[in-house]
Design a protein around this nucleic acid. Structure first.
Length: 246
DNA sequence: TTCCAGGGTGAGT
DNA sequence: ACTCACCATGGA
């Protein structure tokens, strides 16, 4: 499997918020047990997590094939060459939802701190646990109210069911949550549910689309859908790294 | 001091 | 449908 683990774990995707580094290894708790993940010549992980890691790293995605389909212009050719091995990750929907509500008008180092403050025993607090936590101490700013209201709504939603809907329906449901708008819903669809056609447009992607393709941020998603279609999410992640020079 | 960060909301056109 | 002030926090 073609993989650059560092790039994948530290390119602004959920694992950057949800996993921790310990030397050259990454780890998090899965079912109360510590799972390490690291790469030298090969990819290694704590025994017993084959299935989890395969899903997490989307092992079924053939990057060479994806490059062939999206790298149809000099910009994307350069991006997939420079960030070869960058994969889209598949994360837990609830943890992804919480993470990207924390990301609203925020920067990555502080998103990490906010998300970490919402974790206990290596996982994001359940909606119920979240409601009984002192959110003021988490320094979430105006995002605290969003999280509180989402947690209160959660009992009448089924996040698993959203994953079985089609892209449009899933997006409409997600946007019923306060704090979940156009961009955040796209992130949840992409990183939490694996809809590769999702194309989150943040300030960086808007910048990249203007600079590289002459497309305004407002028209970015429609342009991306026509250009990269079902693989827009991958194109997005390579553009994100490219414009930020990660 | 002002600007910015993987934006969303609501009120005003 | 579109704009825009405002939202809380902390680093540059």
């Amino acid at each position: 499997m073609l993989l650059d683990l560092r790039l994948t774990m530290e390119s602004g995707q959920p694992p950057q918020f949800l996993w921790k580094r310990e030397g050259s290894k990454y780890f998090r708790y899965i079912n109360e047990k510590k799972c390490y993940l690291w790469q030298d010549k090969e990819l290694h992980h704590t025994p017993g997590y084959d299935g989890y890691i395969n899903e997490f790293l989307r092992a079924q995605d053939d990057l060479e094939e994806i490059y062939g389909k999206i790298a149809t212009d000099p910009v994307m050719k350069r991006a997939v060459e420079k960030y070869r091995g960058l994969r889209i990750t598949k994360n837990d929907p609830w943890e992804t939802l919480v993470s990207f509500v924390c990301s609203i008008n925020n920067n990555i180092p502080r998103i990490c701190k906010n998300v970490q403050s919402l974790m206990h025993k290596g996982r994001i607090l359940s909606p119920e646990e979240l409601l009984s936590r002192d959110l003021e101490a988490c320094r979430l700013g105006f995002r605290a109210r969003f999280l509180k209201e989402i947690a209160e709504m959660m009992p009448s939603y089924d996040l698993t069911k959203i994953g079985r809907m089609d892209y449009e329906d899933a997006k409409a449901i997600l946007m019923e949550f306060p704090g979940v708008g156009d961009k955040v819903s796209e992130c949840i669809l992409l990183f939490g549910y694996g809809f590769l056609e999702a194309f989150p447009v943040d300030v960086w992607i808007a910048r990249a689309m203007e600079r590289y393709y002459g497309v305004s941020g407002k028209n970015a998603r429609e342009y991306a859908r026509k250009r990269w279609g079902p693989l827009a999410g991958y194109a997005q992640q390579y553009l994100y790294c490219h414009i930020r020079e990660v």
